[in-house]
């Protein structure tokens, strides 16, 4: 009784704060200074058509590096927490085979989904999408493989190799930026090209592609670790 009452009081307090925020909100009619800078300079400085991608990869590239690191850490902790103790695969009894529809569907759809993921992150600097979305789509192909055959095991070594190489290339491109361009993660190490073409925007497509591979590998390792657990 006391507990639900205090919860109610707490929520009422937070709700009052939110209401004050909402009533006091006045939408901007002009872009603020930072946004105006990005809107004016993105095309000439980075050559990317998608301004969000330019901010994520170049202007705030250090944040993305930190984000990928946090994601790596959480994937590693999931692996650490779930892997300790058990002999994997010992207790796993044979399950009834998946339906034919699912098996054929997996065979048909997995290459197409992988292709879509690669398309999404290669075109990240031109159209909506990018490394994170493409990586999630790659991981969902892994998910479909797992649904088709729940006992399938993925090669942890392959996932680890893909992830390490992508991380290395990401940091390596950033360090090249220090020597050949304006600073860490500057995308002008490669020619900017014309706005709107696939091979443009300097290093953004390369960095975003490897971010996509890294994110896909991290999500896949989470899924593989979870699928390696046994039913309790």
């Amino acid at each position: 009784m006391v507990k639900s009452f205090s919860v109610l009081v707490l929520l009422l307090g937070i709700g009052a704060m939110f209401a004050a925020l909402l009533l006091g909100y006045v939408p901007d009619s002009e872009l603020n200074q930072t946004a105006r800078y990005y809107a004016d300079k993105t095309a000439s400085e980075t050559g990317a058509a998608n301004i969000v991608a330019a901010i994520v990869v170049t202007y705030r590239g250090l944040d993305t590096l930190g984000e990928v690191t946090v994601l790596f850490l959480s994937a590693a902790i999931v692996g650490l927490v779930l892997a300790s103790g058990h002999q994997q695969g010992k207790m796993r009894h044979a399950q009834p085979p998946s339906g034919e529809l699912l098996v054929i569907g997996v065979r048909l759809l997995v290459p197409l989904i992988l292709l879509l993921g690669v398309y999404v992150f290669i075109n990240g600097h031109l159209t909506p999408g990018g490394g994170f979305q493409g990586g999630a789509i790659l991981a969902s192909a892994m998910l479909l493989l797992l649904l088709g055959d729940p006992l399938r095991t993925f090669s942890h070594k392959l996932i680890a190799i893909v992830e390490s190489i992508s991380g290395l290339v990401f940091v390596g491109m950033g360090i090249l930026g220090i020597f050949y361009a304006g600073g860490f993660l500057d995308n002008r190490v490669l020619p900017l090209g014309t706005l709107g073409e696939v091979f443009s925007a300097g290093a953004i497509p390369i960095i975003y592609s490897f971010v996509g591979l890294k994110v896909g590998a991290e999500f896949s390792s989470m899924l593989a670790n979870l699928s390696g657990t046994e039913e309790l």
């Binding site: 991608a53 999404v120 909506p128 990018g130 979305q133 999630a136 991981a139 969902s140 998910l143």
Partner: peptide
């Protein structure tokens, strides 16, 4: 916000 929409659909509601 099409970028955010794609991320939310793929990650937030899918994974």
């Amino acid at each position: 916000a099409p970028d955010v929409a794609m991320t939310e659909a793929a990650i937030g509601s899918g994974l």
